[in-house]
Write a protein that binds this DNA or RNA. Sequence first.
RNA 1: GCCCCGUUGGUGUAGUGGCCUAACACGCCUGCCUUUCACGCAGGAGAUCACCGGUUCAAAUCCGGUACGGGGUACCA
Length: 488
Amino acid sequence: MTNKEVRVRFAPSPTGNLHIGGVRTAIFNWLFAKANSGKFILRIEDTDQNRYDENSEKSILSSLEWLSLDWDEGPFRQSERKDLYGNIAKKLVDSGWAYYDDTTSEELEELRQLQIREKRPPRYDNRGRYKEISHEYYEKNKDSKQIVVRFKVPDGGNKPFNDEIRGKVEFNLKEIDDFVILKSDGMPTYHLAHVVDDHEMKITHVIRGEEWISSTPRHVLIHDAMGWDYPKYVHVPLILGKDKSKLSKRHGAESALEYKDKGYLPEAIFNFLALLGWSPGDNSEIMTIDEIIEKFSVDRILGHPAVFDPEKLEWMNASYIRNLEDNTLSKMIIKEVDRPKEKGGLVSEKVSIEDITNRISILTPLIRERLRNVSESSFLLEYFFYDDLEIKKETLLPKKVEPKSIIDGLTKSITLIDEEKKFEPENLEEKFRELAKNSGLKAGQLFFPIRIALTGRKESPPLFDTMCAIGKEKSINRLYSAISIIKS
RNA sequence: GCCCCGUUGGUGUAGUGGCCUAACACGCCUGCCUUUCACGCAGGAGAUCACCGGUUCAAAUCCGGUACGGGGUACCA
């Protein structure tokens, strides 16, 4: 290969949110550009007027931005380049590589039904080839009639191409019918538009999903007809859900932005997705983006689909959270919980975001190791701010211990807390151990009911850290109400 | 149906002809740590490398077939 500049593109169509699979394709493109000091170009393939969704371009862009997949050029929009494709289509007609076809959709449907009935593969029968419709006829009638431009696929022979991952891939041209390159609304189809754009934009490597592999011969054919050089083709494997079907909403969140909302870190998503269908080959898993760029190469991309495992993503996200700076994590937690309590946050008439902010520096260390994604923050922090714990009597009473001695222990605990000047975890632990001993209880037998009383939960951060974070007064109150629950 | 691509523990991957009695990570289980959970640490279970045949002194690795999975088969991308 010559040492010309590497240029790749990510070319989503604005028909909805950016999918996890699309994100992964974008990541591979971006990585390849970075690894080769090339350019990453963003192109919006908006040639389908029917499926166009005006919000999705914005959503796609913000997904890419969230993941720091910055592009060097674009976004270009195909809808703004309509004339270009029309001209190429016309050229192809002139050179005999394409022709106008006015077969109606009804006729096409009729054809299809017949073929299905006769158990033949449903396929266009190239009937338009023989109609010999002229440019003049097309120009005069294109607005009133349904006329498309179809590419004239050679009747036989093979059209092999090289896929960088799989090697030589061969298709018999008999399998391919004359496909539409310009639709009756004057818009190009994907096949024409992307070939033209990739050529115009000097794309050197087409890195795209595996679903394109079977239409690649068409793309090659268009290149041939125009006398253009081929880009290198890299078809990356698809991402499947747990049941091995194409990843979809059924498998949980599927768009990048949903993961953002769920409290995942972009670095974790990036790292995780980079490892789906690709591996550095040296056992590295948690890597910085720079490390991934350094290790990335196309020949380590696999040729088979990967199953998306949400549990491993959780693990990886948790790992990233653990490595965050305290301040960074605190800010993220604050942002997450800064919503009304009814909407999954912690803010209410009683608790303001300032209250939370003031205490966050002691709370963050308590929950960080228990946080798999930031959206769990409200749940883990709730009892530090709210007293209305739901506690059942049974949970306060460990088996094999008399309720009386629990009440006794809790009562003494209140006194201890009340009289303790040095309200610090280490000191409290020491005192409480002593208290347990003197009350004839094992440490756990005393600590367990206290934990329930304080938090309403069976699991929490270390008891005395929790107690200190809750505060002296509130701790006492909660112990009182626990006692009254036992007595009730 | 037809065409294309693929197939290593439940999942992601390592392995590119002898070092493979198959490695790493997630998950699962056990133990340790500990007042609980989590983290961390130490172990464990789990794969006849889809199957069958061939090439070779030697195959997870090369070849062929079968099965299975995925993709495509639109005036969608």
